[in-house]
Amino acid sequence: MSQPAQPGLAGRFLSAIGEPVVYTWREVTGVARMAALVFQYMLRGKIRWDAVAAQMYEIGNKSIVFITFTLGFLGMILVFQAGFQAEKITGDLQLLGALFLQILLREFAPTITALMIATRVGTGIAAEIGSMVVTEQVDAMRMNSAPPVEYLVVPRFIAGTIMMVVLVIYAVLVCYLAGMFTGLYAFNVNPHTFVNFAFVSVLDVAVCLVKALAYGMAIPLVASHTGLRTHGGSAGVGWATTQSVVSCSLSVVILDFILSGLSYPLLAAAG
Protein backbone atom coordinates (compact mmCIF):
# COMPACT_ATOMS: atom_id res chain seq x y z
CA MET A 1 0.00 0.00 0.00
CA SER A 2 1.36 3.45 -0.81
CA GLN A 3 1.77 5.83 2.11
CA PRO A 4 1.12 9.57 1.97
CA ALA A 5 4.21 11.78 2.49
CA GLN A 6 5.22 12.08 6.17
CA PRO A 7 6.07 15.57 7.58
CA GLY A 8 9.63 16.41 8.63
CA LEU A 9 10.86 17.40 12.10
CA ALA A 10 9.74 21.03 11.75
CA GLY A 11 6.40 19.85 10.42
CA ARG A 12 5.93 17.47 13.36
CA PHE A 13 6.88 20.24 15.84
CA LEU A 14 4.38 22.65 14.32
CA SER A 15 1.83 19.89 14.18
CA ALA A 16 2.29 19.17 17.92
CA ILE A 17 1.63 22.83 18.74
CA GLY A 18 -1.14 23.39 16.26
CA GLU A 19 -3.03 20.12 16.71
CA PRO A 20 -4.81 21.02 19.98
CA VAL A 21 -5.67 24.46 18.60
CA VAL A 22 -7.03 23.00 15.36
CA TYR A 23 -8.88 20.29 17.32
CA THR A 24 -10.51 22.84 19.64
CA TRP A 25 -11.41 25.09 16.72
CA ARG A 26 -12.98 22.17 14.83
CA GLU A 27 -14.94 21.15 17.93
CA VAL A 28 -16.27 24.65 18.54
CA THR A 29 -17.20 25.28 14.90
CA GLY A 30 -18.68 21.78 14.66
CA VAL A 31 -20.93 22.36 17.67
CA ALA A 32 -21.88 25.82 16.33
CA ARG A 33 -22.83 24.33 12.95
CA MET A 34 -24.87 21.66 14.70
CA ALA A 35 -26.63 24.31 16.81
CA ALA A 36 -27.49 26.24 13.64
CA LEU A 37 -28.91 23.06 12.08
CA VAL A 38 -30.93 22.27 15.21
CA PHE A 39 -32.53 25.76 15.19
CA GLN A 40 -33.17 25.39 11.45
CA TYR A 41 -35.09 22.12 11.97
CA MET A 42 -36.97 23.59 14.94
CA LEU A 43 -38.00 26.66 12.95
CA ARG A 44 -39.26 24.37 10.17
CA GLY A 45 -41.36 22.62 12.82
CA LYS A 46 -39.52 19.32 12.39
CA ILE A 47 -39.92 18.26 15.99
CA ARG A 48 -40.86 14.70 17.01
CA TRP A 49 -42.69 15.41 20.25
CA ASP A 50 -42.92 11.73 21.23
CA ALA A 51 -39.12 11.54 21.10
CA VAL A 52 -38.89 14.81 23.05
CA ALA A 53 -41.15 13.38 25.79
CA ALA A 54 -39.07 10.18 25.96
CA GLN A 55 -35.87 12.21 26.26
CA MET A 56 -37.41 14.49 28.92
CA TYR A 57 -38.11 11.38 30.98
CA GLU A 58 -34.58 10.06 30.32
CA ILE A 59 -32.81 13.35 31.10
CA GLY A 60 -35.10 14.76 33.79
CA ASN A 61 -36.97 12.07 35.71
CA LYS A 62 -34.06 9.65 35.79
CA SER A 63 -31.75 12.36 37.18
CA ILE A 64 -33.97 13.27 40.14
CA VAL A 65 -32.43 10.85 42.67
CA PHE A 66 -28.89 11.70 41.52
CA ILE A 67 -29.52 15.44 41.83
CA THR A 68 -31.29 15.01 45.18
CA PHE A 69 -28.27 13.24 46.68
CA THR A 70 -25.51 15.38 45.13
CA LEU A 71 -27.13 18.79 45.70
CA GLY A 72 -28.53 17.73 49.08
CA PHE A 73 -25.10 16.75 50.37
CA LEU A 74 -23.55 19.84 48.78
CA GLY A 75 -26.09 22.05 50.60
CA MET A 76 -25.21 20.43 53.91
CA ILE A 77 -21.45 20.75 53.31
CA LEU A 78 -21.67 24.38 52.18
CA VAL A 79 -23.80 25.53 55.11
CA PHE A 80 -21.68 23.59 57.56
CA GLN A 81 -18.45 25.13 56.23
CA ALA A 82 -19.90 28.64 55.95
CA GLY A 83 -21.50 28.43 59.43
CA PHE A 84 -18.30 27.08 60.96
CA GLN A 85 -16.24 29.97 59.52
CA ALA A 86 -18.87 32.64 60.37
CA GLU A 87 -19.14 31.36 63.92
CA LYS A 88 -15.34 31.55 64.35
CA ILE A 89 -14.99 35.05 62.87
CA THR A 90 -18.14 36.99 63.73
CA GLY A 91 -20.21 34.60 65.79
CA ASP A 92 -23.29 35.93 63.96
CA LEU A 93 -25.27 33.43 61.87
CA GLN A 94 -28.30 35.65 61.19
CA LEU A 95 -27.45 36.09 57.50
CA LEU A 96 -26.29 32.52 56.84
CA GLY A 97 -29.45 31.54 54.96
CA ALA A 98 -29.69 34.79 53.01
CA LEU A 99 -26.11 34.66 51.75
CA PHE A 100 -26.36 30.93 51.07
CA LEU A 101 -29.43 31.49 48.88
CA GLN A 102 -27.70 34.24 46.95
CA ILE A 103 -24.63 32.17 46.09
CA LEU A 104 -26.85 29.12 45.48
CA LEU A 105 -28.85 30.98 42.83
CA ARG A 106 -25.94 32.81 41.23
CA GLU A 107 -23.49 29.94 41.10
CA PHE A 108 -23.85 26.60 42.82
CA ALA A 109 -27.29 25.34 41.86
CA PRO A 110 -27.04 25.86 38.08
CA THR A 111 -23.36 25.03 37.70
CA ILE A 112 -23.13 21.99 39.97
CA THR A 113 -26.40 20.61 38.57
CA ALA A 114 -25.05 21.10 35.05
CA LEU A 115 -21.77 19.36 35.91
CA MET A 116 -23.74 16.45 37.35
CA ILE A 117 -25.97 16.30 34.27
CA ALA A 118 -22.86 16.48 32.06
CA THR A 119 -21.61 13.29 33.68
CA ARG A 120 -24.89 11.39 33.73
CA VAL A 121 -26.73 12.63 30.66
CA GLY A 122 -23.82 13.83 28.50
CA THR A 123 -22.13 10.43 28.65
CA GLY A 124 -25.42 8.68 28.00
CA ILE A 125 -26.13 10.75 24.90
CA ALA A 126 -22.59 10.31 23.53
CA ALA A 127 -22.59 6.56 24.21
CA GLU A 128 -26.04 6.02 22.68
CA ILE A 129 -25.38 8.03 19.54
CA GLY A 130 -21.82 6.66 19.33
CA SER A 131 -23.17 3.09 19.43
CA MET A 132 -25.63 3.99 16.69
CA VAL A 133 -22.73 5.28 14.59
CA VAL A 134 -20.54 2.21 14.98
CA THR A 135 -23.44 -0.17 14.33
CA GLU A 136 -24.24 1.79 11.14
CA GLN A 137 -27.68 2.89 12.38
CA VAL A 138 -26.80 6.51 11.65
CA ASP A 139 -25.73 5.53 8.13
CA ALA A 140 -29.04 3.68 7.73
CA MET A 141 -30.88 6.87 8.74
CA ARG A 142 -28.96 8.91 6.21
CA MET A 143 -29.64 6.32 3.50
CA ASN A 144 -33.34 6.75 4.23
CA SER A 145 -33.03 10.53 4.02
CA ALA A 146 -33.61 10.90 7.75
CA PRO A 147 -31.10 13.53 8.89
CA PRO A 148 -29.42 12.32 12.12
CA VAL A 149 -29.45 15.85 13.57
CA GLU A 150 -33.22 16.10 13.11
CA TYR A 151 -33.87 12.60 14.46
CA LEU A 152 -31.31 12.32 17.23
CA VAL A 153 -30.16 15.79 18.28
CA VAL A 154 -33.30 17.98 18.10
CA PRO A 155 -35.33 15.90 20.65
CA ARG A 156 -32.35 15.72 23.03
CA PHE A 157 -31.71 19.45 22.65
CA ILE A 158 -35.29 20.46 23.45
CA ALA A 159 -35.63 17.95 26.29
CA GLY A 160 -32.23 18.89 27.73
CA THR A 161 -33.03 22.60 27.69
CA ILE A 162 -36.43 22.22 29.37
CA MET A 163 -35.34 19.63 31.92
CA MET A 164 -32.19 21.49 32.90
CA VAL A 165 -34.30 24.48 33.97
CA VAL A 166 -36.65 22.17 35.90
CA LEU A 167 -33.74 20.31 37.52
CA VAL A 168 -31.99 23.53 38.53
CA ILE A 169 -35.15 24.85 40.23
CA TYR A 170 -35.49 21.50 41.98
CA ALA A 171 -31.78 21.59 42.91
CA VAL A 172 -32.19 25.04 44.51
CA LEU A 173 -35.03 23.70 46.67
CA VAL A 174 -33.22 20.51 47.69
CA CYS A 175 -29.93 22.28 48.38
CA TYR A 176 -31.59 25.08 50.36
CA LEU A 177 -33.70 22.68 52.45
CA ALA A 178 -30.62 20.52 53.18
CA GLY A 179 -28.74 23.68 54.17
CA MET A 180 -31.65 24.80 56.38
CA PHE A 181 -31.67 21.50 58.29
CA THR A 182 -27.88 21.65 58.67
CA GLY A 183 -28.22 25.22 60.01
CA LEU A 184 -30.83 24.02 62.49
CA TYR A 185 -29.07 20.88 63.76
CA ALA A 186 -25.43 22.02 63.54
CA PHE A 187 -25.70 25.70 64.49
CA ASN A 188 -29.16 25.96 66.01
CA VAL A 189 -30.26 28.51 63.39
CA ASN A 190 -34.04 28.75 63.38
CA PRO A 191 -35.62 28.00 59.95
CA HIS A 192 -37.50 31.32 60.18
CA THR A 193 -34.13 33.07 60.46
CA PHE A 194 -32.49 30.89 57.81
CA VAL A 195 -35.18 31.51 55.17
CA ASN A 196 -34.28 35.07 54.32
CA PHE A 197 -34.62 36.62 50.86
CA ALA A 198 -32.93 39.92 51.77
CA PHE A 199 -29.97 39.42 49.44
CA VAL A 200 -31.88 37.92 46.53
CA SER A 201 -33.27 40.02 43.69
CA VAL A 202 -35.14 39.14 40.50
CA LEU A 203 -31.82 39.53 38.72
CA ASP A 204 -30.32 36.69 40.79
CA VAL A 205 -33.20 34.43 39.76
CA ALA A 206 -32.75 35.55 36.14
CA VAL A 207 -29.02 34.76 36.23
CA CYS A 208 -29.80 31.32 37.64
CA LEU A 209 -32.36 30.57 34.92
CA VAL A 210 -30.21 31.97 32.08
CA LYS A 211 -27.32 29.77 33.19
CA ALA A 212 -29.63 26.75 33.40
CA LEU A 213 -30.90 27.47 29.87
CA ALA A 214 -27.37 27.88 28.48
CA TYR A 215 -26.10 24.67 30.09
CA GLY A 216 -29.26 22.83 29.04
CA MET A 217 -28.58 23.79 25.43
CA ALA A 218 -24.83 23.18 25.53
CA ILE A 219 -24.71 19.71 27.09
CA PRO A 220 -26.94 17.87 24.55
CA LEU A 221 -25.24 19.68 21.66
CA VAL A 222 -21.70 18.91 22.77
CA ALA A 223 -22.54 15.32 23.72
CA SER A 224 -24.42 14.67 20.45
CA HIS A 225 -21.60 16.20 18.43
CA THR A 226 -19.11 13.91 20.19
CA GLY A 227 -21.36 10.90 19.66
CA LEU A 228 -21.77 11.57 15.95
CA ARG A 229 -17.98 11.78 15.55
CA THR A 230 -17.47 8.29 16.99
CA HIS A 231 -15.50 5.84 14.89
CA GLY A 232 -13.65 2.60 15.39
CA GLY A 233 -16.09 0.19 17.07
CA SER A 234 -16.55 -0.26 20.80
CA ALA A 235 -13.23 1.48 21.57
CA GLY A 236 -14.64 4.50 19.73
CA VAL A 237 -17.74 4.47 21.94
CA GLY A 238 -15.46 4.48 25.00
CA TRP A 239 -13.56 7.43 23.55
CA ALA A 240 -16.82 9.31 22.85
CA THR A 241 -18.05 8.75 26.40
CA THR A 242 -14.85 10.04 27.98
CA GLN A 243 -14.57 12.91 25.53
CA SER A 244 -18.17 13.88 26.21
CA VAL A 245 -17.57 14.28 29.98
CA VAL A 246 -14.48 16.39 29.33
CA SER A 247 -16.09 18.57 26.62
CA CYS A 248 -19.44 19.00 28.41
CA SER A 249 -17.77 19.88 31.73
CA LEU A 250 -15.43 22.32 29.99
CA SER A 251 -18.34 23.98 28.18
CA VAL A 252 -20.22 24.37 31.47
CA VAL A 253 -17.21 25.96 33.17
CA ILE A 254 -16.48 28.28 30.22
CA LEU A 255 -20.15 29.28 29.92
CA ASP A 256 -20.23 29.90 33.68
CA PHE A 257 -17.20 32.18 33.36
CA ILE A 258 -18.76 34.14 30.48
CA LEU A 259 -22.24 34.43 32.00
CA SER A 260 -20.90 35.33 35.44
CA GLY A 261 -18.63 37.93 33.86
CA LEU A 262 -21.59 39.43 32.01
CA SER A 263 -23.99 39.32 34.94
CA TYR A 264 -21.86 40.60 37.83
CA PRO A 265 -21.70 44.20 36.57
CA LEU A 266 -25.50 44.12 36.35
CA LEU A 267 -25.83 42.57 39.81
CA ALA A 268 -23.38 45.10 41.23
CA ALA A 269 -25.26 47.99 39.62
CA ALA A 270 -28.54 46.68 41.04
CA GLY A 271 -26.93 46.71 44.48
Partner: peptide, 19 residues
Amino acid sequence: LAQLRFNIGMVFQNYALFD
Protein backbone atom coordinates in the same frame (compact mmCIF):
# COMPACT_ATOMS: atom_id res chain seq x y z
CA LEU B 1 -28.56 13.88 -1.93
CA ALA B 2 -31.61 12.95 0.16
CA GLN B 3 -33.68 12.68 -3.03
CA LEU B 4 -31.03 10.49 -4.65
CA ARG B 5 -30.90 8.22 -1.59
CA PHE B 6 -34.63 7.60 -1.85
CA ASN B 7 -33.63 5.57 -4.91
CA ILE B 8 -31.15 3.41 -3.04
CA GLY B 9 -31.81 0.48 -0.74
CA MET B 10 -28.91 -0.73 1.35
CA VAL B 11 -28.27 -3.83 3.43
CA PHE B 12 -25.53 -3.03 5.94
CA GLN B 13 -22.78 -5.34 7.12
CA ASN B 14 -23.84 -4.89 10.78
CA TYR B 15 -27.62 -5.03 10.06
CA ALA B 16 -28.01 -1.37 11.20
CA LEU B 17 -31.50 -1.99 12.61
CA PHE B 18 -32.79 0.84 14.79
CA ASP B 19 -32.72 -0.42 18.40
